[in-house]
Computed example of a mutant assay.
Amino acid sequence: MFGRWAVEFCADHELPDDALAWLIATDQDGFVSRDWFFGEVTERFGLAASVDDTWRQCRRRRPELVSCRQEVLASLTLLRDDGWTVAIVTNGQADNQLGKIRRTGLDQRVDAWAVSGELGIRKPAREIFEAAARGVRPRSAGWGLGDR
């Protein structure tokens, strides 16, 4: 998703050839603060838009640019067909995360989700995982997978 946004951003602002590589390197796979990142972007490229406006424009595009690999969707279907209960627990703003869940088709392949921006609870707090499990019948034990 970020790469797609960065390509669009470079084209929209008619940035030099090295801009895309700079954006991707500076983003550090999303491990830096968005406020800091968009501050750097605004300064580097001399944008007329504010840091907040640039971040807001990116945020608006995120649900439209995200995708989920077909093998991931197929694996989720196989897990559910095998009797597993599958839930998503994610930090982030509700509109953005829910848009991504729906856009990718994950909403059709999981049993539940819990979004921190909707609940006011963030991972790794136990309560957000409990919220995801509410209303579904998980097995007696569970597994958690994450990106970090």
Rank of each mutant, 00 (worst) to 15 (best):
T85L: 07
M1V: 01
R34Y: 04
E71F: 10
W113G: 04
D107G: 12
A125P: 01
R59G: 10
L20E: 15
L15I: 14
E8H: 11
R103G: 12
I101A: 01
T104I: 06
R44N: 01
V66K: 01
A74I: 03
G83M: 11
G117E: 04
T85N: 10
P63N: 00
E71T: 11
V136E: 07
S33H: 02
L65M: 11
G117I: 05
V115Q: 06
P63F: 02
L98A: 10
R69D: 12
M1F: 01
E40Q: 15
F9E: 07
G30I: 12
R137G: 11
T26N: 13
G39D: 01
R4K: 14
W143L: 15
V115E: 03
G144V: 13
D147S: 14
L145S: 08
R109W: 03
A132T: 06
F37M: 05
D29L: 08
R134S: 12
E40H: 08
W22G: 13
L15Y: 12
G46Q: 00
A21Y: 09
F37K: 04
A114Q: 05
G83A: 10
W55I: 02
A132I: 04
G135A: 12
Q57F: 00
T85I: 13
Q93A: 05
A131F: 02
I88S: 02
S50W: 03
R44F: 00
T42H: 02
L15W: 14
V32C: 05
W5K: 07
S75F: 05
A11G: 14
E43A: 09
R109L: 11
T42D: 00
Q28I: 08
T42Q: 13
W143Q: 10
D18I: 09
N96R: 11
